[in-house]
Design a protein around this nucleic acid. Structure first.
Lengths: 240, 240
DNA sequence: CAACGAAATAATTTCGATATTTAATTGACA
DNA sequence: TGTCAATTAAATATCGAAATTATTTCGTTG
C-alpha cells in the first residue's frame, strides 16, 4: 500500500472541476492558477478583503489557501504584514533554471534506470496525447491553451515518474510551477514560435531506448532554450 | 495573554526571534518541534479540539499552522477528514535517505566550488561551536540536548550554504527535518553510541581544502551510517 | 521647513459560534 | 444472526465580528 501520494495537480487548475473538496482547496487551486497564469502579477499585495470579494468566500478559506501557497513558494508571508505574490527577477530565474536542471537530471537518470514497462508505456502515451493538441487555442494570435499546458506538464512528469522518490518528484513539480509562471509572464511579450514537439519526441525516444546520457542532455538543452526565450523577451519583472 | 510559557519543546529553535511573531507562527514552531521530537507520534490524529487545549489558542492559529505543516510534509491533510502526523515506515526512510544523498551531494559540490572565504569561516566556526557541546544533556543516560541539535543542524547547513540555490537549500533543510524525526524515533530505543565529532571534523577539513570528492564521499557515508543505526534500532513504526 | 509624535485609519490576526460533512450507533428486516 | 438503512454523535470547515497591530495623516515643535 503506497502511502498517500497526493502531489501534483495541474498547472492552470482543472478549470471547472468544481470538485467536491473544501472551499479552502478550491480557493487554493484558483489562486494558484491565477498566480501561475500571471493574472496576479509578481509582487502583488494579497489583501484578505480583496480576495474575499474576488473569490466570494469568507475569511478562513482564503487564509488557509494563502498559507499553503506560502509553503509552496508561490506566495510570501510576513508576520503581521500579510501576503503577496512572490516577486520575479532575472536572478531568480537563473537560480530556478539551474536548480531545475540539477534535480531533473537526477530524476531522469533514475527513471531511465528503474522504469518498468508501465513507465515506458505511460511515457509514450503522454507524448501521443501532447502531440495531438495545439500549442495555442487560436490560430493567428497566441492564446494559452489550458489543455496543452496540462498535457505538457503531464509529459514532463511522466519522464521523471519512475525516479523512485516522491520527494524528488514533488520538488520537480514545484519547480515546474515556478518555471511555468515565468513562461506565462514571458508569453505576454513574445509569441512562442518554437516547435517543441520535436524536442519532446526526441526526449521520449532517448528515454525509452534507455539512453540516459542522450536523454539528460536533451532535457537540459530543452530547459536552457526555454530559459533563453524567456530571458530575451523580458527586460525586467516587477519586483519587491 | 502573556506568552510566558516559552517552553522549548522544539529540537530546533529555528527562529531566534521567536516570540515576536503571530500566534499562528508560534503554534507552527511548537507543533513542528513536537512532531520532530516524536512527542507527537507518526500517524497520530490531530484534532483541532485537542490541539486547542494543548496549545491554548483558538481555532484559526491551529488551522493555519497545520496547513503550513502539511505543505512541509510533516502532516498529511485530507479534505473533510482533517490532519494527522505523517506516517513513518522503513520504505519511507530508505526513500528519504536516498533523496537526501542525491540532493546534498549536489549542494556540497556546488558549495565547495563556489564558496568564498566567508563560507569557509562560517564552516569552521560552526564546527567549533558544535565540538564544544555535549551530545547528550546528561552523563549516564541519553537525553536530547537541544543545543547540540541546533548546532548540528547549523553545521550541516553551513556545509551547503554556498551552493547558490535557495531552492536546493530549502529542500535539503526539509529533508533534514524528516531525517531528524526518524533519528528521534530511533533514539528512544538506542543510545547513540557513535562519536560523530570525528566525522564532522573530517567533512569540514575536506570541504575547506576544496576536496569535493572526499567531502561528498564522507557526507554520504555519514548519512548511510546514521541510517544504518536507525534501521537496526527499529523494527517498524506505527503507520497509516 | 523639516522632524517628531500622537490620533485616525486600514489591514491583519484571532476568537466563538454555526453550518456541513463524516463516522458511529442503533434498530428494523430478511 | 447478519446486513442495511436511518438516526445520533463527533469532528471538520466556514463565517462574521472583535481584538491586535501596522500605516497613514495631520498638527505641533525645534
Amino acid at each position: 500500500m503506497p502511502p498517500d501520494d497526493k502531489v501534483v495537480t495541474s498547472i492552470v487548475d482543472l478549470a471547472g472541476q468544481g470538485s467536491a473538496g473544501t472551499l479552502a482547496s478550491t480557493v487554493y487551486d484558483r489562486l494558484r492558477g491565477d498566480i501561475l497564469s500571471g493574472s496576479l502579477p509578481p509582487g502583488e499585495k494579497l489583501r484578505t478583503e480583496a480576495l474575499r470579494a474576488r473569490y466570494e468566500v469568507g475569511n478562513s478559506p482564503i487564509r488557509e489557501a494563502l498559507n499553503r501557497l506560502s509553503a509552496d513558494g508561490l506566495v510570501t508571508r510576513e508576520d503581521q504584514k500579510g501576503f503577496r505574490v512572490v516577486s520575479a527577477s532575472r536572478a531568480d530565474l537563473e537560480e530556478l533554471v539551474k536548480t531545475r536542471c540539477w534535480l531533473e537530471a537526477i530524476a531522469l537518470r533514475e527513471s531511465i534506470a528503474n522504469g518498468d514497462d508501465e513507465w515506458e508505456e505511460g511515457l509514450v502515451l503522454s507524448f501521443h496525447r501532447l502531440s495531438r493538441v495545439r500549442r495555442s487555442s487560436s490560430e493567428d494570435h497566441y492564446t494559452v491553451n489550458p489543455e496543452w499546458e496540462r498535457l505538457h506538464r503531464a509529459f514532463h512528469l511522466a519522464l521523471l515518474s519512475a525516479c523512485g522518490s516522491r520527494w524528488l518528484l514533488q520538488y520537480c513539480a514545484q519547480l515546474n510551477d515556478q518555471a511555468d509562471r515565468y513562461r506565462q509572464l514571458a508569453i505576454v511579450v513574445s509569441y512562442p514560435r518554437r516547435n517543441e514537439l520535436n524536442e519532446h519526441e526526441a526526449m521520449m525516444k532517448a528515454a525509452t531506448s534507455r539512453d540516459a546520457e542522450e536523454a539528460v542532455s536533451l532535457l537540459m538543452a530543452h530547459y536552457e532554450r526555454t530559459a533563453g526565450i524567456i530571458r530575451e523577451s523580458i527586460s525586467e519583472f516587477a519586483a519587491s
